[in-house]
Write a protein that binds this DNA or RNA. Structure first.
Length: 715
DNA sequence: AGCACGCCGACT
DNA sequence: GTCGGCGTGCTC
C-alpha cells in the first residue's frame, strides 16, 4: 500500500460537522475488495475501502461504487502487488458487512485468483460471476433472516442405506487402485466404455470420502443430467445431504443450496460447470463426469474450463480428482498417457472395458452412400438397407433411434426461379425452415418470420427446401414405415418444461417405435428396448474447419452406439448404422472396433503434425464491431504493437480473420490467434499484452467489445 | 457493466 | 418549450 490513506479519508468520512465531542480517534483500516467490474472498465485490481475494523479475507460485504452500492468480497492483501490507490481518489467506507456468513475459504479465493489470472479477467469478475446472483439483491439483515430460516428448517437427513451392489471384477480393481493412491491427491482419468459402470465408481469413491468426514464435488456437463445422477446419489446416501448447484435452479433455491455448501451442511455437491467454484469447506474429492464434454467450457464472460479448473482445485486443496469418460478429451488422454507412449504422464489412467451385465457393444454397419443410385437419394435421406433394418425392428417390436444433428425441416429455402435463399437479415447465416409453424428461423439471433408465400425477390411461388433436418426426417420415416409410431426429440420439441421427460417416458413405455433426434438424445439415457441406432449424415465432421470436430463426432457416435442393446438379451442383435460417403475414413474404422485408443492415437498424431493442442497452446483475441473492417483494424493495431513482446515470449501472432459465422445479430466478429509451444510463455505474454489492450482506444469508432479466450474450443 | 452527464429531434 | 436518443467517461 502506498501512502497512508487514513488522513485523506478522515476529511470525507468525518461525522457531520457540529457533532459535539469528537469521537474517540479510531484508525480505520483499508480493506481490498473485489467487485464485479469487467476487465475493460480499467478496474482490474481490488479496490480499497475503509473499515472500522479489520475484515477477514473472504468476507462478503456491500460497498459504494459511484452512485450505486454493489456486492463485494474482502480480498487478500499481497505485498509487492500494484494495489496502491491512485492519486486523487478518496477512499470510501464499506457500506455493510455480511457478518452472519462464514468468509469464503482461502482455497476458494486461491482458485478464483488462479482462474482470473489464467483466463485474463479480474478476480472480482470471476468471484462475483460464480456467487449466487440472489446475493446481490439482499441486504445484510435480509441475508441473516434467510440464514436463520435455513438453519431452522435443516432437518437431520434420514433414511436407510440400501443394499450395495457388488462391484464387478473390473470395478473392484479400479477401486483398489484409487484407494491405494488417494493419499497422493492424484488426478485419475477413468476411461470406461458406456455401460461399464463408471457411476458406481463415483458412488463408491464419494462414499469413502464422505465417511471420512469430507465432502465430494461431482460435476456433470448438463443440467438435464443432474436429476438422474442426483437420484442415484440420494438413493445411495440416504443419511447424507445431497445438494445440486446449476443455473437452472430458481434464484432463491440456488442461494439456499449455495449457503448449505458454504455452511458445510452438504456432504455431496452435484452440479454443472459453475459448481467447480462451490465453496466447500471440507472438500475431499472432485469428480468430473463426461470430462470430454464441451459444455465444461464457459463461452461468456470469464471463459474458463471447469474440467481444467477442477484439476487446479484438486492441486490447491490437496485432494484427488477423478475425470471420467468413455471418450476422453485428447488433452486428458495425452496427460494420462505415460511418457513411454509419447504422453505427458501427468495423470493416472484406469480402464474399464467390459459392459456391466455382460452386454456387448453393438455391431457397427457402414452404409456406403456413394454406391447408391442418385434417384434413391433424391427423395430420402435413408438408404434402402437402413430402412430394411428399421422394418425388421418394427416387426420384432423393438425400438430404433435415428440421429440427425440438425433441427428444423430444412436448413435453407431457395427459389427455383431466381436463386433467392432464406438468408437472415442480421446474421451471415441461412434461416432454417420450420414446417410445423411455417416459420423461417435464424438459429443464431432468433429472428423468426412466417414463410413467404412466394419468393420475396421475384414473386415465383415455387420455393423449395434444401437439405433435411429432424422434422423432415420424421416426416420421411413416417411415410417409409407405415404404421410405425415415430417420435422426435430435439430443442424444439422440448422447449416446454417437462416435455423432454414426457417424451422420454413415452419411449420407455414402448409407445414409440422410431425415435428421431439431435445429439441431445445420445447422452446418458437408458433405453432398454433399443436395438438399432442410426447416424443419418455424420460426415460433415470429417472435413470441418474446426479441428475438434472429429473428436466430438467420434464421442457422439460412441455415446449413441451405447444407447443400443443395453438389455443383455438383445445385445447380440444391437446395431449401430452409419450412412457415409467415406466408409474408409479412419474415424469410422475406429468406431467399428469401438477402439477409442486407436482413434486417439491417430488424432494425436494429426494434432502434433499440425501444431495443435495438446502440443501447442492457444488463445484467441476476439473483437466485435458494427463493421468487420473496424474489428480487424483494431486487432491489427494491437497485434502490431505486440510484435516485439510476442517475439520476446516466443509467441506467434496470426493475422486477424472473420469468424466462420462472421455476423450475428448485426455484430461483425473477428479474431486473432495467439499460439505458443509453452503454456507459461503464453500466459506471460497475455498478461503483458493485457495492459496494451485496455489502453488502446480504437482508431475508428464502433468497436463494441473484445475478449481474450484462453484454450478456446474452436479456432 | 451501470450510471451519470451532455448535446440534438418529436411531442404530453 | 420539455422528454429522450445513445456517445463518452468514471467508478476505491
Amino acid at each position: 500500500m502506498g501512502k497512508s490513506p487514513s488522513s485523506r479519508a478522515a476529511a470525507t468520512s468525518a461525522p457531520a460537522a457540529g457533532a459535539e465531542p469528537p469521537a474517540p480517534a479510531r484508525e480505520p483500516v483499508v480493506v481490498p475488495v473485489v467487485i464485479d467490474a469487467p476487465q475493460y472498465s480499467g478496474l482490474k485490481a481490488a479496490l480499497g475501502y475503509l473499515s472500522e475494523r479489520p475484515l477477514t479475507p473472504g468476507t462478503l460485504l456491500r460497498v459504494p461504487l459511484g452512485r450505486r452500492e454493489v456486492l463485494g468480497v474482502a480480498w487478500d492483501t499481497r505485498s509487492g502487488e500494484d494495489s496502491a490507490v491512485p492519486d486523487g481518489v478518496t477512499l470510501r467506507e464499506v457500506a455493510a458487512v455480511f457478518d452472519a456468513l462464514p468468509p469464503l475459504p482461502a482455497a476458494w479465493r486461491e482458485l478464483v485468483d488462479f482462474a482470473a489470472s489464467y483466463y485474463q479477467r479480474s478476480p472480482g469478475e470471476v468471484a462475483l460471476a460464480v456467487l449466487p446472483p440472489e446475493l446481490r439483491m439482499l441486504s445484510a439483515t435480509q441475508l441473516e433472516r434467510r440464514l436463520t430460516r435455513l438453519r431452522a428448517k435443516l432437518l437431520p437427513p434420514s433414511g436407510a442405506q440400501g443394499a450395495l451392489p457388488a462391484p464387478s471384477a473390473e470395478q473392484a480393481q479400479v477401486l483398489q487402485a484409487l484407494a491405494a493412491s488417494a493419499g497422493d491427491a492424484p488426478v485419475t482419468l477413468l476411461h470406461g466404455s458406456t455401460g461399464s459402470g463408471k457411476t458406481e465408481i463415483y458412488l463408491r469413491e464419494a462414499q469413502r470420502v464422505v465417511e471420512a468426514g469430507r465432502q465430494a464435488l461431482v460435476l456433470v456437463p448438463e443440467i438435464n443430467l443432474t436429476p438422474q445422477l442426483e437420484e442415484r446419489f440420494l438413493a445411495r446416501f440416504p443419511g447424507r445431504r445431497v445438494v445440486s448447484l446449476h443455473s437452472g435452479l430458481t434464484p432463491a433455491r440456488r442461494l439456499k443450496h449455495w449457503l448449505m455448501v458454504l455452511l458445510g451442511e452438504a456432504d455431496l455437491v452435484l452440479g454443472t460447470r459453475l459448481a467447480v467454484f462451490a465453496p466447500l469447506p471440507r472438500l475431499g474429492l472432485v469428480i468430473v463426469d463426461e470430462e470430454h464434454d464441451p459444455s465444461y467450457k464457459q463461452q461468456e464472460g470469464a471463459r474458463y474450463s471447469a474440467r481444467d479448473l477442477a484439476v487446479v482445485r484438486g492441486r490447491v486443496e490437496g485432494v484427488p480428482v477423478l475425470l471420467g469418460s468413455a471418450t476422453p478429451s485428447l488433452e486428458s488422454w495425452h496427460n494420462a498417457l505415460p511418457a513411454t507412449e509419447g504422453g505427458a504422464g501427468r495423470y493416472t489412467r484406469l480402464t474399464m472395458a467390459a459392459r456391466i451385465g455382460g452386454g456387448v457393444l453393438p455391431t457397427v454397419r457402414l452404409v456406403d452412400m456413394s454406391r447408391l443410385p442418385k434417384e434413391v437419394l433424391r427423395d430420402s435421406a435413408l438408404s434402402p438397407a437402413l430402412l430394411g433394418a428399421l422394418r425388421e425392428r418394427l416387426a420384432r417390436g423393438e425400438q430404433s433411434l435415428v440421429l440427425l444433428n440438425r433441427r428444423g425441416y430444412a436448413p435453407v429455402l431457395h427459389c427455383t426461379e431466381c436463386g433467392w435463399k432464406s438468408a437472415c437479415a442480421h446474421c451471415s447465416a441461412w434461416r432454417v425452415f420450420h414446417k410445423l409453424d411455417r416459420t423461417l428461423r435464424c438459429h443464431h439471433c432468433g429472428l423468426t418470420e412466417r414463410v413467404p408465400r412466394a419468393c420475396p425477390d421475384c414473386g415465383n411461388a415455387d420455393i423449395q427446401p434444401t437439405g433435411r433436418g429432424t422434422e423432415r426426417l420424421e416426416e420421411q420415416l413416417a411415410l417409409a414405415l407405415p404404421g410405425a409410431r415415430v417420435g422426435r426429440i430435439d430443442a424444439d420439441t422440448t422447449r416446454r418444461s417437462g416435455a423432454l421427460e414426457a417424451e422420454l417416458s413415452r419411449v420407455h413405455a414402448g409407445e414409440v417405435d422410431v425415435l428421431v433426434g439431435t445429439q441431445m438424445i445420445a447422452k446418458g439415457h437408458d433405453f432398454r428396448r433399443m436395438t438399432l441406432v442410426a447416424a443419418v449424415n455424420p460426415d460433415a465432421a470429417l472435413f470441418s474447419s474446426d479441428f475438434r470436430a472429429p473428436e466430438r463426432q467420434f464421442s457422439l457416435l460412441m455415446q449413441a452406439a451405447g444407447r443400443a442393446g443395453r438389455a443383455a438379451e438383445q445385445a447380440d442383435r444391437a446395431e449401430m448404422w452409419v450412412q457415409t460417403w467415406h466408409p474408409q475414413h479412419a474415424l469410422y474404422a475406429a468406431l467399428r472396433t469401438h477402439d477409442y485408443a486407436a482413434f486417439a492415437q491417430a488424432q494425436l498424431a494429426e494434432r502434433r503434425a499440425a501444431g495443435l493442442p495438446p502440443y501447442t497452446h492457444l488463445a484467441l483475441l476476439r473483437a466485435d464491431a458494427r463493421e468487420q473492417s473496424v474489428a480487424q483494424a483494431w486487432l491489427r493495431v494491437v497485434s502490431d504493437e505486440a510484435r516485439e513482446l510476442a517475439e520476446q515470449h516466443q509467441v506467434a501472432l496470426y493475422p486477424p480473420v472473420p469468424l466462420s459465422v462472421q455476423r450475428v445479430a448485426d455484430m461483425e466478429r473477428a479474431q486473432l490467434l495467439v499460439e505458443s509451444a509453452s503454456r507459461p510463455a503464453l500466459q506471460r505474454f497475455l498478461t503483458a499484452w493485457d495492459a496494451t489492450l485496455r489502453r488502446k482506444r480504437p482508431e475508428q469508432k464502433g468497436l463494441l467489445r473484445w475478449a481474450v479466450d484462453v484454450d478456446p474450443l474452436a479456432i
